[in-house]
Design a binder for these strands. Structure first.
Lengths: 332, 332
DNA sequence: TTGTAGGCGTTATCAG
DNA sequence: CTGATAACGCCTACAA
């Protein structure tokens, strides 16, 4: 039975080499002057012994961390939000590229997790900065705490709070693109289906619709596939002439199309539908979704890069906007 | 201009209260005996001052970390793998529930990131354990490094390495379920489309097919939507009578269905297709995908829980298997 | 160029 | 029950 293999530390390493820890530290970090000869000697030995600087000791003395937190809201328990997944992937890639790590944190409104858990996490030094996808009071809360604790942070999406860095994506313009499209393609009876929090999309939609906006029918409810499916029935009952609809997100649109199909309606023949977000699956769908591309991956990537710049003190830019674009496919 | 607000530490806190740091530490951690009175006094003050124990100092002395690494392979640059996203969500929820954080790490084969980056990360104390989704040499590599460094780890999926803890999901049985289904539903000319790494699925498929297995046509290539779309043409050219196909994953199946639709074929009328994984989007698709459910969320959840048990030393179980089940929907 | 020594913020041991 | 004090492993003046 051998003794538990304690990991080698810089003291052990330097002792074996007959140099001081200071020299070893300098040789390894590359900071400070060391003769090329000893540097090589030390590095070689470190490599041979598999020495790794203990990250906690290092972070303690250097007062830093290599982790970035990514906060997002997961609405349906157990089901990932694809939009979020894509944004996260972008953030993740950008973070890794700069030798940092992404720490992901789902937050729910209801929640099992007490807010204290997040507060502590945000403020105890675990992270160097935070990316928070705005969605509700909880996310604003997080941003506030970060600001109070002098933790660099960036919001993805809009927020009422001011003074916070953010990357936004012109939801209103996105809605307008859809309205424009329907108006120009000669549709006459528009409807909007979405959640309660998508005021901007709807507002833009109405604008793009022009005079048609007066006839806009709204079905405001959830944001899930089931919601979309159910919505079709309600709309067709209340506004039977509806021939074009904008859904607040792609999954909702898929549900709506399903509802239409079940009722024997053809998309886009009888009714055209435009989704929102352009998640990957939108292109896979049948009919392939015409949708408003938000550039999900790029949003995450940008947020991470801006945040990292902020942390390194070489940026001060407050808002980065990434414009939407309409992707025409089959559903409209 | 005020001096940079240095964060308050336990020394400051105890000084203000006229107690020793030792007492403060005990009061805050709840370990060791402190009079109820002083404990309250200390806690109240800590709260008032917003004191938070520095995580690095704590982890240094305690030799631990509250982070779990999640390694996964992202095949298509910029596009999230939905299967992975769902597994990750499960892992994430389970981790958070136990007051730990998930550190996600995409790894590519080609890669910009040198292996050293991961090695260091794995061994320098950042993480308490690692979950790695097996896929290729890189993932085995990671598991090996973790094992060598005495870092608790768990594999999701199969691996040739032995002695590693893992959660597996009987891919062969999954394939068999599909074969069974086609055989029993009277189909006569099966095909399999998938990547090169899915030997087990194909093997099981053949088994389930029974005598039909002799006629099995294979189209082995990529795993993307485009691959599936292209595959249809190849299969119909080489084996025109094909009337049922198993695809190695759902997105591939969607692509295949798209290819079929473009060629005027009806699914499942002319050709039935079964997918694999049962990602959320499978249910949203038209036709909704009949597929092999792997229980993605549960896989991630289980892996995280087993790993955490391992870390806490209260488990020693080596393999956890989560069986697949066929979900019948519209495509077959 | 190299070594000595102090300090980063905690927790744990051991006296009092 | 409470208080000194020694680690934990690293980095960095400062001195040699």
């Amino acid at each position: 039975m051998r003794k538990e293999h304690r990991k080698i530390n810089i003291k052990d390493l330097s002792r074996k080499l007959g140099v001081s820890v200071a020299t070893a530290s300098r040789a390894l970090s590359g900071k400070g002057r060391v003769s090329a000869e000893t540097r090589e000697k030390i590095r070689r030995k470190a490599d041979e012994l598999g020495y790794r600087a203990n990250i906690h000791a290092r972070n303690l003395i250097l007062r830093r961390s290599e982790n970035i937190a990514f906060f997002y809201t997961n609405i349906e328990k157990g089901k990932p939000d694809y939009f979020m997944s894509e944004v996260m992937l972008g953030a993740n890639d950008a973070t890794a590229k700069r030798n940092m790590h992404l720490l992901v944190n789902p937050i729910s409104n209801s929640d099992d997790q007490p807010m204290e858990f997040y507060t502590d996490f945000l403020l105890n030094g675990t992270i160097a900065g935070a990316i928070v996808v705005t969605a509700n009071k909880a996310s604003d809360n997080l941003l506030e705490i970060a600001a109070g604790g002098n933790i660099p942070s960036i919001a993805i999406g809009d927020t009422k709070m001011d003074g916070v860095h953010k990357v936004t994506f012109q939801l209103e313009k996105g809605g307008m693109l859809a309205g424009d499209y329907f108006r120009k393609s000669g549709r006459g009876n528009p409807a909007y289906v979405g959640g309660f929090m998508d005021g901007l999309k709807k507002k833009g939609f109405r604008k793009g619709l022009g005079q048609l906006g007066a006839k806009l029918f709204q079905d405001l409810g959830g944001a899930s596939f089931e919601d979309g499916k159910d919505s079709f029935g309600r709309i067709i009952a209340a506004a039977p002439k509806t021939d074009c609809v904008l859904c607040a997100n792609d999954v909702l649109a898929m549900g709506f199309i399903k509802g239409a199909a079940l009722a024997g309606f053809n998309v886009p023949g009888d009714i055209a539908v435009i989704g929102f977000d352009d998640i990957q699956a939108a292109a896979y769908h049948s009919p392939a979704l015409t949708t408003i591309r938000l550039h999900n991956y790029q949003i995450g990537e940008t947020a991470a890069n801006v945040l990292l710049d902020l942390i390194e003190g070489r940026s001060t830019r407050t808002e980065t906007v990434i414009g939407p674009v309409l992707i025409g496919r089959e559903s409209a």
